[in-house]
């Protein structure tokens, strides 16, 4: 377990969510890990799926498309375009191609901030086209490879009863 806590803020009834996390690494390395497809493929996951980038152009106006492939060869594709790519901010669109119809696009703004002692704060703000789209994305987390390790979740729940996270 990392001492750096990942915090997701998804307020009820809103079309947006925030994901924040700090890293014990300088900003240029965190940026590199997000913009070099070989490095990105090492951690993007999920754990049991391989990642293949078909296109990855991390420049303003560039495109990206990647596939998650499971053991049975099933492919899950995602694509989008980079609106702005700088060492302190990456803005991109994101769409899962497995939806019944196209157009469920979200706009993601990732901000990289320098912290003292060579650390970095990463904040992702994602805006969806509807509350239902946002909630669908949050609820998808329940099905995507999170079935194992419920003992860990139980521990977290035990902890949250003393000090719940809002």
């Amino acid at each position: 377990m990392s001492k750096n806590k990942t915090v997701v803020t998804a307020e009820p009834g809103k079309q947006e969510l925030f994901i924040t996390r700090e890293f014990d690494a300088p900003r240029d390395l965190v940026y590199q890990a997000h913009t070099d497809p070989e490095i990105l493929a090492q951690w993007l996951g999920p754990k049991d799926l391989s990642v293949e980038f078909e296109v990855f152009e991390p420049v303003s106006g560039g495109r990206w498309r990647f596939l998650n492939i499971d053991h049975d060869g099933n492919e899950y594709a995602f694509h989008g375009t980079f609106h702005e790519v700088t060492p302190t901010r990456v803005i991109q669109t994101f769409e899962f191609e497995g939806m019944p119809e196209t157009g469920h696009v979200s706009l993601e703004t990732m901000t990289l901030e320098d912290l003292p002692n060579g650390r970095t704060k990463l904040t992702t703000h994602a805006v969806y086209q509807s509350v239902a789209d946002r909630d669908g994305m949050v609820e998808a987390g329940m099905e995507s490879g999170v079935a194992d390790g419920y003992d860990k979740l139980d521990e977290m729940l035990a902890a949250t009863q003393n000090q719940p996270t809002l």
Binding site: N4, T6, A10, V138, G145, V146, L153, P164
Partner: peptide, 28 residues
């Protein structure tokens, strides 16, 4: 708890992803 239960798996999904990123950053 129900509110926490709702967002927890998504948060855990991202937490696992970022824990993998920690390892990659150490290597870098």
């Amino acid at each position: 708890k129900p509110i926490y239960d709702w967002v927890a798996p998504f948060e855990r999904y991202w937490s696992e992803r970022f824990n993998r990123l920690d390892e990659v950053l150490e290597q870098l």
